[in-house]
Amino acid sequence: MENCARFASDLEKGGGTMYTLSDTLHGCTIAHQPVLLDTAKGRYLTLRGDASRSLLDAVERQMPSAMEDMLRCHGLLAWDAKAQVRVHDAPVVTRSRREDLSQTVPGKRVMAALGKRLAARHHLRGRPFGETLQALRDAVAPKRSPARWRRSHGEAEIATAFACSRLWLAGDGRCVPDSLALASVLARHGHRPRIVIGVCLPIAAHCWVQCEDRLISDRLEAITPFHPIWST
């Protein structure tokens, strides 16, 4: 019931939670409108009218059976599958490591970051969306690395190296593989990154990396328009 109350309160404010409706269907609410991420088909979509009201009511009351027929009719739930309702707190960001890039990093670390970006793009090229999300989950998993590596590079230092490497790829923003690369490096050095996908209306999406409430991949203004809909 606590989840229901939190969802109802957030619904009045127009956001604040994410919810899972099946293994391949995730959602959030923006200005009283549900936005869904269908990972099986790699698409974002919005629901309107009766479909929107049915979904929001079912999520608020924690009654997934009430929305199963609607989801099936929209091709969002297999006919032999069961819906579920799990409400999650959206990740919170209060500051960004990208706000202070005053420190310098060796050129070899910038080149290493660039290499990680390019390798991640090659790794994800042509993959189905579901496999891409699994790669993101794998990237944030704790790594067994040499003791000398653990926390040998701080969050700000890694953020600076990746920010500088972006200059070599100007105008070529690919937030998903870039987040994969950054999270992998953070995890390798003993940090605990989280990859988040956010959406805004009209439908647009962005992927970023944070450690607890600290944004690593972007400046704060870059993610402000986006509402989290999925995270590792």
Score class of each variant (00 low, 15 high):
1 M>D: 14
4 C>L: 10
5 A>D: 14
6 R>E: 11
13 K>T: 14
14 G>Q: 08
15 G>S: 00
15 G>M: 02
18 M>G: 00
19 Y>D: 01
22 S>D: 04
23 D>Q: 10
24 T>Q: 10
25 L>R: 00
27 G>K: 01
29 T>K: 02
30 I>E: 10
30 I>A: 10
31 A>Q: 13
31 A>Y: 13
33 Q>C: 12
38 D>V: 08
39 T>F: 07
41 K>E: 12
47 L>F: 09
48 R>T: 11
54 S>G: 06
55 L>T: 04
55 L>Q: 03
57 D>I: 04
58 A>W: 02
60 E>C: 12
60 E>Q: 14
61 R>S: 14
61 R>E: 13
62 Q>L: 15
63 M>K: 11
69 D>R: 13
71 L>N: 00
71 L>G: 01
72 R>T: 05
73 C>P: 00
74 H>L: 13
78 A>D: 14
79 W>Y: 13
80 D>V: 10
81 A>R: 11
84 Q>G: 05
84 Q>P: 01
86 R>Y: 03
90 A>M: 04
99 E>A: 15
99 E>S: 15
102 S>H: 13
103 Q>R: 15
103 Q>I: 15
109 R>D: 14
109 R>P: 02
112 A>M: 12
113 A>P: 08
115 G>S: 13
116 K>N: 12
117 R>L: 15
119 A>I: 02
120 A>Q: 07
122 H>Q: 09
122 H>W: 11
123 H>E: 13
126 G>F: 04
128 P>T: 06
129 F>A: 05
130 G>Q: 08
137 R>Y: 10
139 A>S: 12
140 V>D: 00
141 A>L: 12
143 K>Q: 13
146 P>N: 02
147 A>S: 10
147 A>P: 05
147 A>I: 09
147 A>T: 07
149 W>N: 12
150 R>A: 06
151 R>I: 04
152 S>N: 07
153 H>S: 08
155 E>R: 09
156 A>Y: 07
157 E>F: 03
158 I>N: 09
158 I>Q: 05
159 A>V: 10
160 T>A: 09
160 T>C: 14
163 A>L: 11
165 S>K: 12
166 R>P: 07
168 W>L: 14
169 L>A: 15
171 G>S: 08
173 G>D: 11
176 V>R: 03
178 D>I: 09
179 S>E: 10
180 L>R: 11
181 A>R: 11
182 L>V: 02
183 A>I: 06
183 A>G: 09
183 A>T: 08
190 G>H: 01
191 H>N: 03
193 P>G: 07
193 P>R: 07
194 R>S: 10
195 I>L: 12
196 V>E: 00
200 C>V: 05
203 I>V: 09
205 A>F: 01
205 A>C: 10
209 V>F: 02
210 Q>K: 10
211 C>Q: 02
212 E>F: 06
214 R>P: 04
215 L>K: 01
217 S>P: 05
217 S>W: 05
220 L>I: 14
221 E>Y: 09
223 I>N: 04
224 T>A: 13
225 P>E: 05
228 P>V: 02
229 I>S: 02
230 W>Q: 02
232 T>R: 06
